[in-house]
Design a protein around this nucleic acid. Sequence first.
DNA 1: GCCCAGGGCTATG
DNA 2: CATAGCCATGGG
Length: 271
Amino acid sequence: MTARLRISTFSLKNSLECGQFFRYTKVMGTYLVQSANHLFSLWQEGDVLFYEGAEEDFLIRFFRLDENLDSILKEIDRDPFIHRAIQKYRGMRLIRQDPWECLLSFLCSSAKSIPHIRCIIESLCKSSGEKISFGTYMGYGFPEPTCIENEVQLESVRAGFRASYLVTASQCIDRNRLLALRDLPYREARQQLMGFRGVGKKVADCTLLYSLDFLEAFPIDTRIKKGLEKVYFGGRRTGEKKMEEFVSNHFGPYAGYAQLYLFHYWRNHRF
DNA sequence: GCCCAGGGCTATG
DNA sequence: CATAGCCATGGG
């Protein structure tokens, strides 16, 4: 029943709890994870991952375990600030999420704290998702586009002004359309996403980085913005245009991993 | 009652 | 381009 997988340079805890992914719960060191219509549990002891309810291939894809993280971290380790974050959280990996779930999750994220985003997404699944279970666990799958029909249906979600974004997205986007974006250049894929209501640069970049394999995407939210200004721009207020240019030149094609580490570090330690 | 929270839209310099 | 006010909602 319980399968195991030996891995190196991986922290299950930090990968799940760093704010990139929302549908997990922790019970006595075991994580119950829900993604799209998957429901599985797992825990980590040293370099061994124990899991139930999922296939090995899926986990390797989901947690990007076939990616050489050490060489990526070596490439983005360009200054003392990122160096400290890497030292502290080495093993934290990007999660390859389902693109539809990822897009809608971050459509819910604007001007909300991370715990509350998780609440909204959970009630979204409860209101519109399918019941799923494995063993004694039960939960709700993430609603497919056709399952979200109107705002009335979402009343219990209490999503505020974000509710209309969710409905319009459900009307004109499907998973395959999102997956097709992977074949486009980064800038072009981002522009396409930004064509949808409620999707600006930040939400687009989160979707591209966390679900569509664009590792150069570097989502700039309020926290990252303040952090960048403080440590890389001498405390001066800086426009997003300059910031995008800087992180692209400074961190290179794996800038998204730098964002993951800086965000988590600045969330847990004041700067 | 006030402020803030992984933003985006719209109207303005 | 860069900024300001507004958009619902909940928690401190």
